[in-house]
Amino acid sequence: MTMADSNPLGDKDFVETLIPQKKPFVMVDTLYFYSENELVAGFTIHNDAVFLKDNSFVESGIIEHMAQSVALHTGYQFYLRNEQAPTGYIGSINKLQIKGLPKLHDEIRTTVSIIQEFGGVTLVDIVSKLNNVEIANGQMKTVLAK
């Protein structure tokens, strides 16, 4: 059993309080694991998903899910300190590979691994999986608003 298979730390309603995005633009709904350097988030694709086309969750949806997983890490970090999380922005996306598209009712699980964090700028590795098979990966740099 891996850390991401355990009971979730947070459900959809709780997760939505930790990220700046609001319905219908929420692309994370479960927090499975959190540590200072890593997070595992989930998203189950429902028929009202913004990026659902012909029963497939398209590339831009996967990228947004990845970005919101990073935002969830920051939001939970601030939640644990009883502080309001600042808004963050994507600074850059590098080495992005999308190898497969999930379908309606599939759950994507994404692991965010912090590579470096300094002065409000965070560099992360991101891997998204469907049924334990990698469907996307890349690096993202995010910047917190001052």
Rank of each mutant, 00 (worst) to 15 (best):
K103I: 05
M3D: 14
N55F: 10
G120I: 00
D5E: 13
E38M: 14
L31V: 06
V112R: 00
E38T: 14
K12H: 11
P86G: 08
I114R: 03
I63K: 00
T2L: 13
P102K: 01
L96S: 01
T17K: 15
H105C: 05
L9I: 08
V143D: 06
N137E: 10
F33C: 09
Q116S: 09
A49Y: 01
V58H: 01
Y34W: 14
K129Q: 15
S69E: 04
K141A: 14
N47I: 07
T87H: 14
P24H: 12
M66E: 11
K23Q: 12
L96F: 06
T74R: 06
H65M: 06
I19Q: 07
H65P: 02
V58Q: 09
N55M: 09
H105Y: 12
M27F: 11
G100A: 12
I19W: 11
N82G: 11
Q68H: 03
I93R: 00
N132R: 10
G120K: 00
P102C: 05
T74E: 12
Q97C: 10
F14D: 04
V70P: 03
K12P: 01
Q139N: 09
A71R: 00
V127S: 07
E83L: 09
V143L: 11
A136Q: 02
L96M: 07
E134V: 05
T30S: 15
N137L: 08
F78Y: 15
F14E: 06
G75S: 02
Y79I: 02
M3P: 14
S35N: 09
M3F: 12
M1N: 13
Q84L: 13
T74Q: 10
A4S: 15
D54V: 08
F51V: 07
V58P: 00
S60N: 10
F25Y: 10
V143M: 15
L96E: 03
H46I: 13
A49M: 02
Y76L: 03
M27L: 09
M140N: 02
G88H: 07
S113H: 15
H73S: 04
K53Y: 12
M66S: 10
N47V: 02
N137H: 15
Y32I: 10
F14N: 01
V127Y: 08
S6F: 07
Q97S: 12
D29S: 06
D48P: 05
F43R: 06
E16P: 01
V143H: 13
S56N: 14
M66Q: 08
T17M: 12
V40G: 03
P20A: 12
T74H: 08
F51S: 03
Y89G: 00
